[in-house]
Computed example of a mutant assay.
Amino acid sequence: MSVKFRRSLLFASGALLAVAAFAVPVVAGTAAADPGAAGSGNQARIVGGEKASLADHPYAVYLTDAGGNQFCGAVIVSSTSVATAAHCAKAVAKQDIRVVAGREDKRTGDGQVLGVSKVWVSQGYTDPTKGGDVAVLTVRGQFGYRPAKLPDSGDAGLYAKGTQATVLGWGRIADGGARSDYLRSAQVPVVSDSECRTDYDVYDQRTMVCAGYAEGGVDACQGDSGGPLVVGDTLIGIVSFGDGCAKANRPGVYTRVSTYADDIEAQAKPRLLG
């Protein structure tokens, strides 16, 4: 089994091209990479999904490098911060990361483009398959869009088998397929811990959660790392890794946000403006 992150990097003509690869219904990507190489892939957008609206999901954002190349997704968690995957936060130097909010169609100039002043990565993170694949980026400025809610102790039921969740992103519609210019979404059911452990021997139920259909067909793909998995407006997962896109018995693996909610909240606390 070849486990892939949802983001990969390559250099072409001196420009950094970032691509997120993942195996659950998820967001967009950027430049193409070798879809067969571990840790790399083509841009991914929701597989089996549909066009989505920021009016319904105003907290969905994406990350670019300084050259405007999208390499990951993210989600607004406060007026000054976004949560994303740790492997996304470590892919590009802090001074070169841009957070694009309020831009449903990437070809437009809508919304906000904010630089990043601070990067927090979960302590002990090494790679997505070992857990801790979560980061918080503090932006220079403030968002004018509603943040997603973080789960609390009363939201344990959101992780129950069969719970319908929504994954969001701007990635490819198929492994190696064309990239999307628009925000897309897909509905995927939460998979039980025991089933996901059967599908992935690296699965850790404390730090990860799986979502997808046994028969495949709906999933995230390359370029969607760091994007949100939500139930209603509550963030339960962050796109992390998977085996290809939308394969049978290979659900997408997400960071389990409930495990890191306190850390995310502490890091996302809006700055006091003096």
Rank of each mutant, 00 (worst) to 15 (best):
T259F: 05
I236H: 02
V253F: 11
D262G: 13
G237T: 10
D262K: 15
G237R: 06
S258L: 12
I264Y: 08
V253Y: 02
R256M: 06
T255V: 07
T234H: 13
G244E: 12
V239G: 02
D263P: 03
G252L: 01
Y260D: 04
R256K: 15
T234M: 12
S258V: 12
E265V: 09
D243L: 04
G237S: 12
F241V: 02
P251G: 07
R250T: 14
V239N: 11
F241G: 03
Y260H: 11
V253K: 00
S258C: 11
V239R: 00
I238Q: 00
C245Q: 08
F241C: 08
A246V: 11
S258N: 10
A248I: 10
T259P: 00
G242T: 04
T234G: 10
G237Q: 02
A248V: 08
A261Q: 09
L235P: 11
V257P: 05
D243I: 13
N249M: 07
G237V: 11
I236Q: 01
S240I: 04
Y260T: 10
N249G: 03
V257I: 11
C245I: 07
N249V: 01
D262C: 09
A261P: 05
G252V: 07
T259I: 01
G242W: 01
E265N: 11
G252Y: 00
S240Q: 10
D263M: 12
I236F: 00
K247W: 09
A261S: 13
R256F: 07
I238R: 02
V257F: 08
T259A: 13
C245F: 09
I264L: 11
N249A: 12
Y260N: 02
K247A: 12
F241L: 12
D243K: 14
R250N: 14
N249H: 14
D263C: 06
P251D: 03
I236E: 00
T259D: 02
G242L: 05
C245W: 05
N249T: 03
N249R: 13
P251K: 03
G252W: 00
A266Q: 14
V239T: 14
P251A: 07
L235S: 12
I264E: 03
G242Y: 00
P251N: 06
D262Y: 08
G242P: 01
N249S: 14
Y260K: 07
V257S: 06
S240Y: 04
S258Q: 13
V257L: 08
D243A: 15
S258A: 15
V257H: 02
R250F: 09
I238V: 15
G242A: 09
T234Y: 10
V257K: 03
A266R: 15
K247Y: 13
A266F: 07
Y260W: 14
D263H: 13
Y254M: 11
C245H: 10
A248W: 13
F241D: 05
L235T: 06
N249W: 08
R256L: 06
F241N: 09
G237K: 06
D243N: 15
G244F: 04
E265S: 14
G252R: 00
A261L: 08
D263A: 15
A248Q: 11
F241H: 15
I264S: 03
G252F: 01
D263Q: 15
A246Q: 07
T255K: 00
V253A: 08
E265C: 02
I236G: 01
T255D: 04
I238Y: 01
D263N: 14
A266V: 05
T255A: 12
